[in-house]
């Protein structure tokens, strides 16, 4: 009898754990969206932020976030893809490969603030790029690289060996086989992983504090000359991203509407990340269906 009762109790506890987890998410999302959605308006999204008065927007921060994300992906995707291809296709089981695997593991588990400090040391000070979009993007590249490498390697590993043999047996070189057959076959998985990692990069803040900076110069959105200091495209200007903005407002903000701005910004940030998630799933499914000829 007792074992039955224990069983009942233990299983109930397990169910409760799952409920707590789901409830946590529901509460988090509920809180953010409930408080945040009312703060989001067109003017909030399209106005400059204000340092002292109420009513500031997040236009620049939003732009910076996407710009840094884009720059980061520009660096990470080719590097990460090739790294993943190396580990999956070329790496022989030897010491060097083990070492590279360890390096990926180390990169993946370094605290992001350490990556930020490295960025400060190298990109900001040593190369003299100051707090800039470029420094921030390069720091985030270090932060995101191991993720893309792993995603790529996993996706490639799930491609059946027969496809590789099929390519090689046709007298196609290994690199060309990988380029035209294996990578395309793994593409849905890789793309899904890349988009998900984009969500992670978009929300990252600690690595950007000392690399992209805490402020944005006045931007003139009609000036698209990347060399000009007021141009939104200038990669050498400092740039506060949306997630850094949330932190900044909460710890050092002095405007009267801190709460509203924080609520609104958090909601925008979470919605963007959710958007990335949803987009990743849809794209993955869509391409998968197209490749297998079910569409």
């Amino acid at each position: 009898m007792t074992s039955k009762i224990t069983n009942r109790i233990a299983l109930t506890v397990i169910v409760l754990c799952a409920l707590v987890m789901t409830a946590t998410l529901a509460a988090l999302l509920g809180y953010i969206l409930y408080h945040g959605l009312s703060a989001i308006s067109l003017s909030f999204l399209t106005k400059d932020s204000s340092s002292f008065q109420a009513g500031g927007g997040i236009k620049n921060q939003l732009w910076n976030s996407f710009y840094i994300l884009f720059a980061t992906m520009l660096f990470t995707v080719p590097l990460g893809l090739c790294g993943g291809i190396y580990l999956s296709e070329y790496a022989k089981p030897n010491k060097l490969t083990q070492f590279i695997r360890s390096c990926v593991e180390v990169l993946a588990s370094l605290p992001s603030i350490v990556v930020g400090m490295f960025g400060l040391l190298i990109f900001v000070n040593y190369f003299g790029w100051q707090y800039s979009i470029l420094s921030g993007a390069l720091a985030l590249t270090v932060f995101n690289l191991p993720v893309i490498v792993r995603v790529t390697e996993d996706a490639l590993q799930s491609v059946p060996r027969e496809l590789r043999e099929g390519g090689l047996a046709l007298g196609v070189t290994q690199w060309h086989t990988i380029k035209t057959i294996v990578v395309p076959a793994a593409f849905p998985g890789i793309l899904t992983g890349i988009i998900l990692s984009a969500g992670r990069v978009f929300g990252e803040s600690a690595a950007l504090l000392f690399t992209a900076g805490l402020s944005t110069p006045n931007l003139d959105f009609s000036n698209w000359n990347p060399m000009s200091m007021t141009s939104p495209l200038n990669p050498f200007r400092s740039a506060e991203t949306l997630s850094v903005h949330i932190w900044q407002v909460n710890t050092a903000g002095i405007t009267p509407d801190i709460q509203t701005i924080a609520n609104g910004s958090s909601a925008v940030l979470v919605l963007c990340v959710l958007g990335f998630n949803l987009f990743a799933r849809m794209v993955g499914k869509f391409i998968d269906r197209k490749l297998t000829g079910k569409a």
């Binding site: 059946p160 027969e162 496809l163 043999e165 099929g166 047996a169 057959i181 395309p184 076959a185």
Partner: peptide, 12 residues
């Protein structure tokens, strides 16, 4: 040339 046990057309 070679043809394998399981048909392995490329997903193209």
């Amino acid at each position: 040339g070679m043809v394998f046990q399981r048909p392995n057309p490329f997903p193209k």
